[in-house]
Design a protein around this nucleic acid. Structure first.
Lengths: 360, 360
DNA sequence: GAAGCTTGTCGAAACGTTTCGCAAAGCTAA
DNA sequence: TTAGCTTTGCGAAACGTTTCGACAAGCTTC
């Protein structure tokens, strides 16, 4: 690989002049500059990132800290990475994929001590997250995909949960539903600190109240079996509910099975929609489910983008904080509520051709 | 951040001695070594990757070149990245996620010219892949996830398609099926060079023949609509087929819908299985589909691992080439063939409770 | 007790950049 | 004409490592 010195020799100038010409850090006479650029092109010169980083203290490398894939780690989370990598690439940066081991703080200490990365991108941020505290204290540049309970002046890109809930409720209310239920993630273990679950729950309740709709929000389901049970309880305790939004893909599987066992059909007897699931997942179901698709790649892009902004621009400008709307993808699982469900319930032995979801 | 010099001062030795002691590249007296290690620990010393890489020409960074997410880019492909990142991390390496732009060769030229990465990990390798040619010619270390038609001495980790097909056929034959069909990806566009589609097709045919089973392999489907049409044709042209393996998730959606429209049930009237789809996807279906889950994360791990082996060990040892089996995840969609399908076909207005897949 | 090893440590060079003080011009203004 | 300024380019230092020849001391061996 040719170096700055090779270019300097070929262009008959000093090394420092080449550096200045190529980076534009100092004025260089037009003629000289052209000569240098030609020499560089002829040699196929590429600046060595390591040498540059060593002296300038800036490597143009970002690290995305990603947690060990828990079960339930899906396409959505992965798109943070691809979105961030693309945004970084477009701006001349690189993205390091850094798996988080058992001790995230030790991992951070290691990563930042390497001198390899200019900034860190955090995902799967919990409402109370020790990583943000450590990074802030260490004064290391970072941004979040998601956010803590009190983001303060930390940069972040997150889902606009209020708007998402508003859109969902508007969609259902627009179809004529008067009472809806929301199956959230379970509150135990990881989810206790899981921002999306908590924020979605709160916002759904608020949106339903504002729209003057009946609302059942205290059901949880993270698996098919839990989804099934939750549905059974829902039907027993809240027969007025005609529309259901589910957070967890697996729970939806259970709900759908239970609905069928009841002799009900979707969407004739129940409107079912996913929340924060990608359209690719939603269309695996039958009928194709309506979903509010999270803007995952966009969040990744934004997270990386604002981190680069912070790195290249003023280090202590105002916080960059963005909330992004979800996309409502209407499937075949949304419909007006049944006029009289008890009547329909008896009607369950419909011709099989009807069972495919109706709208296709 | 403390440097080697700080450690040297604190331990009262020369810089080079510290380097030797910490890396073990030269013998250092036990007492001195201990003193140095303590000083390093007290200062929280971390070697600067950039400086080290600059002189040693080894950065311990790998790049995973990942293509722009085409549609159909799923969990499976993403797990290559996480697997590779984990394997790298365990061995003290880092993984750079490098999005491939319109011109892969230019991208490679850029990436390798940076001096930033020691080796490149290729995924989505086509049967005839210009990237492998360029890298081989440039003499730049790399390995493949997947493989070209003639891998020669290039390192790779790929799916064991022969075994996969054998397992699938054995599973179906074991249930008593005598004739099966395989819906492959379509042959146009990208898939024309898509190794998994071609190899799976070939191996399926071979395995079916070897098992003495009837086989229909010339159907293609990449979408729900195509799946539906392919199924209709299959039923019309090959009524003897009782088991169907499908490559594409979306095609499976269409097949299931068409099956229902026929008044058939899975698995009572037809055994349906996925091929090379993750279990997470398979269990979104209803009934839960049997699948041959690709060992994606494992392939990522292996790909990174063999690249690191190559980098640290002998550069021109024998090729490291690994084929990994898929995991058969039995769902609720596999069952013995119907005794007499015409009889069952009339029986389609079964009580709704039966429609959930039976085995749950 | 000198020659020859071995062991342990040092110092300096090198890697390829960026940065910055400095100087040689050429120009302007008095 | 000369002092002062601007423009342009140079050279050296620095970044934090690794690598390697040199060398001092201690040991063996005859």
């Amino acid at each position: 690989m040719s170096s700055l010195r090779d270019v300097a020799e070929r262009a008959q100038v000093a090394v420092s002049t080449v550096s200045a010409a190529l980076n534009g850090t100092r004025p260089v006479a037009a003629a000289t500059k052209e000569r240098i650029e030609q020499a560089a092109a002829e040699l196929g010169y590429r600046p060595n990132v390591l040498a540059r980083g060593l002296v300038s203290k800036r490597t143009r490398i970002l690290a995305l800290l990603f947690p060990a894939p828990r079960s339930g780690f899906g396409l959505t989370e992965m798109q943070f990475a691809t979105g961030a990598a693309e945004a970084a690439s477009e701006r001349g940066y690189h993205l390091l994929l850094s798996p988080e081991n058992a001790d995230p703080i030790e991992e951070l200490r290691h990563l930042t001590g390497l001198g390899l990365v200019d900034g860190v991108l955090l995902m799967e941020v919990r409402l109370d997250d020790e990583r943000t505290r450590w990074l802030a204290e260490a004064g290391f540049p970072f941004s979040m995909i998601g956010r803590t309970r009190e983001p303060g002046s930390i940069d972040y890109a997150d889902i606009d949960f209020a708007r998402m809930a508003g859109d969902a409720v508007a969609h259902l209310a627009g179809l004529g539903h008067r009472a809806l239920a929301f199956f959230n993630h379970s509150t135990d273990g990881y989810s206790a600190q899981y921002g999306p679950a908590i924020r979605a729950g709160e916002e759904f309740e608020a949106a339903a109240r504002e729209a003057g709709l009946g609302y059942v929000g205290d059901f949880r389901a993270d698996s098919a079996e839990q989804g099934r049970q939750a549905f059974e309880r829902l039907v027993a305790e809240h027969p007025e509910v005609t529309a259901l939004a589910v957070m967890n893909d697996h729970a939806a599987v259970g709900v759908i099975a239970a609905v069928a066992e009841h002799g009900w059909q979707i969407p004739r007897d129940l409107t079912l929609m996913l929340v924060l699931s990608s359209a690719r997942v939603a269309e695996m179901f039958h009928p194709r489910l309506t979903t509010l698709e999270p803007p995952s790649a966009e969040l990744g892009r934004l997270g990386a983008g604002m981190l680069i902004d912070r790195l290249t621009g003023d280090g202590d400008g105002p916080p960059r904080q963005r909330l992004v709307a979800c996309r409502l993808v209407t499937g075949d699982s949304s419909a007006p509520p049944p006029v009289d469900r008890t009547e329909r319930r008896d009607n369950s032995a419909a011709p099989p051709v009807d069972r495919t979801g109706g709208r296709r």
